[in-house]
């Protein structure tokens, strides 16, 4: 029996890998390219000048940032605890962190609405969440905070425990070790989590629409224009929204791609 030609076998396999990989890349790129190609430049400029569009994109950008920064205050410590400590029900806590990713976002919106509506637990506090930026921030944070927690946790897990022990032994307090060793060495992962959380929050529609319709975040404006004026009017808004997201995405990646990962 003839042996198969190894070189041919591996070449075929490599060809198949490249073909399949190319298919998924095409699947991601095709709608975006078509969106951009089919949007006339004049229409794009005109839409960019529209006050309502600018206001909604601006709201999406800063509300997502506020959601990310405010969540980070407790998300990063939680990520550190999950990475470093052993405690009862740790796997349950880990699962809880992932819950917002797996539940339908419309259901998440209803849940948040129930909490902040007039007779909800926080509704009685008198703080106006419904129909306000605070409500938008809250909805965005709920659905996107797992991205930050998980990325930061991976970053902290990659920092060698022995480095932290060495720092403690050199006379540093646990807080100083966290601030000067663990956090800087995990910064790239944390920054990656910040970018992901911010991007995910900015694109949120399902949960936000239950909390507030006005002021409109960009995805809601897009949905409204599509329903009212049709695809031709919605398309330039979508291009602008994607463009702004990309600019921030690249800028944040650039700013956080310093010279250090957690050296192991």
């Amino acid at each position: 029996m003839d042996r198969p030609n190894n070189i041919t076998t591996y070449s075929n396999f490599s060809l198949m890998l490249h073909f399949l990989a190319g298919m998924v890349l095409l699947f991601i790129l095709a709608p975006l390219v078509s969106l951009v190609v089919e949007t006339p430049f004049n229409t794009l400029v005109e839409t960019a000048r529209d006050e309502e569009v600018r206001r909604s994109i601006g709201l999406s950008v800063w509300a997502a940032m506020a959601a990310t920064l405010l969540s980070g205050i407790s998300a990063i410590p939680l990520a550190y605890l999950l990475a470093r400590k052993t405690f009862p029900f740790k796997s349950l806590v880990s699962a809880l962190v992932d819950l917002p990713i797996v539940i339908p976002h419309a259901a998440a919106g209803i849940a948040i609405l129930g909490l902040f509506a007039g007779d909800g637990w926080f509704g009685r506090s008198g703080i106006p969440f419904i129909g306000s930026s605070a409500g938008i921030i809250c909805a965005m944070a709920f659905v996107s905070v797992p991205f930050l927690i998980n990325a930061a946790r991976q970053g902290f897990e990659a920092v060698p425990v022995r480095l932290e022990k060495a720092a403690l032994n050199l006379g540093a307090s646990p807080a100083r070790v966290f601030a000067t060793i663990s956090l800087p060495l995990a910064k790239r992962s944390i920054a990656g989590g910040i970018v992901l959380m911010w991007a995910r929050g900015m694109s949120e529609f399902g949960a936000v629409i239950f909390i507030t319709y006005n002021p409109k975040v960009a995805p809601i404006l897009l949905w409204e224009w599509f329903g009212t004026y049709g695809l031709d009017y919605a398309r330039p808004v979508a291009v602008l929204l994607i463009g702004v997201s990309l600019i921030f995405f690249v800028a944040l990646r650039f700013l956080t791609s310093g010279d250090h990962d957690a050296e192991r």
Partner: peptide, 9 residues
């Protein structure tokens, strides 16, 4: 605690 022990490794 290791940080105040006076034995540095």
């Amino acid at each position: 605690h290791t940080s105040i022990r006076g034995l540095t490794l």
